[in-house]
Design a protein around this nucleic acid. Structure first.
Length: 216
DNA sequence: AGCCAGGACTGAG
DNA sequence: CTCAGTCATGGC
C-alpha cells in the first residue's frame, strides 16, 4: 500500500473534490484572524470561539482597546482557551509589535515575505505556525501553514518522514510541490484541518479515511 | 476519569 | 540540536 503514494497535488485535489472550498480563516476581520491564530495554539477551536465572542461582546476585538485595557480584565475573557496567562502575554507581545506597523498594513502586503516572517518570529510567543497563519490568512501572503494535522495526514498517506521532520523541512517540501499561490495554500491547510477533524480523528488511523478506501 | 486540542518557550543534557 | 516539562480549560 505504500508503493503508490499520492502526489501532494493529488491529495489536494482529492480533498478539494470531497469537501469543496472552505473559505478560510473562520474570522470576520483581519484583526480577529490574528487574535485567533495566537489563541488557538494547542487548543480546540471551539474554546477559541468562546474567547473571541467574549472579546467582541466587551468591545475588545480591536487593536488599541485590547492593548489599553487592564490585563486582569482581559484574562477572564480568554479563560476558555487555556494557558490564558501565557497566551495573554503572547497576544500582547504581538499586538505591541503590530501597533507600530498595523496602521498601514500595506507593509504586510508588499514587503518581502521572509522579512515579515522573521519579524513575526522575533515576537516572543509567535512560532512558525502562528506566523504563517497570520501571513497567509490575514494578509494573503503565499506561505504554507504546517501543523500537527499536516504531519499526521501526510505521514498516514505514505510520507512517513514527516512524522519527525522539522517544520521548515515539511514546509519547504510541500511548497516545492505546489504552485506559489496563496489561494491554494489557504485552501489546502483548511482542507487538511477539516478532514482531520471530521474523518481522521482516531489514531492510529486512517482506515476509515477516504484515501484508504480509494487506494486499497 | 483520563486524554487531547489547528504551539511555543525554557532549561537540561 | 533534541526533548521532556510547562502552561490550563472544555468536551468527549
Amino acid at each position: 500500500m505504500k508503493q503508490n503514494i499520492q502526489s501532494v497535488i493529488d491529495i489536494y485535489n482529492s480533498l478539494h473534490s470531497i469537501y469543496g472550498p472552505q473559505d478560510w480563516w473562520p474570522g470576520e476581520t483581519q484583526f480577529e484572524i490574528i487574535v485567533g491564530a495566537v489563541l488557538t495554539q494547542s487548543t480546540a477551536w471551539h474554546n477559541v470561539t468562546l474567547a473571541i465572542d467574549s472579546l467582541k461582546k466587551n468591545g475588545l476585538m480591536e487593536l488599541k482597546p485590547l492593548l489599553e485595557v487592564n490585563p486582569e480584565q482581559v484574562k477572564p475573557l480568554i479563560n476558555p482557551v487555556g494557558f490564558f496567562n501565557v497566551k495573554y502575554r503572547r497576544l500582547r507581545n504581538l499586538l505591541e509589535y503590530l501597533s507600530g506597523h498595523f496602521e498601514n498594513f500595506e507593509r504586510f502586503r508588499h514587503l518581502p515575505l521572509d522579512l515579515l516572517r522573521n519579524e513575526l518570529l522575533n515576537v516572543s510567543g509567535v512560532g512558525p505556525e502562528t506566523a504563517d497563519s497570520i501571513l497567509l490568512y490575514a494578509f494573503d501572503r503565499p506561505t504554507f501553514v504546517v501543523d500537527a494535522y499536516t504531519r499526521r495526514l501526510f505521514s498516514r498517506l505514505g510520507y512517513d518522514w514527516m512524522e519527525k521532520a522539522s517544520y521548515e523541512e515539511i514546509q519547504k517540501f510541500l511548497m516545492g510541490q505546489l504552485p506559489s499561490d496563496y489561494k491554494i495554500y489557504n485552501e489546502f491547510h483548511a482542507l487538511i484541518v477539516v478532514h482531520c477533524k471530521e474523518v481522521c480523528r482516531k489514531k492510529p488511523l486512517c482506515w476509515t479515511c477516504v484515501f484508504s478506501r480509494e487506494n486499497p
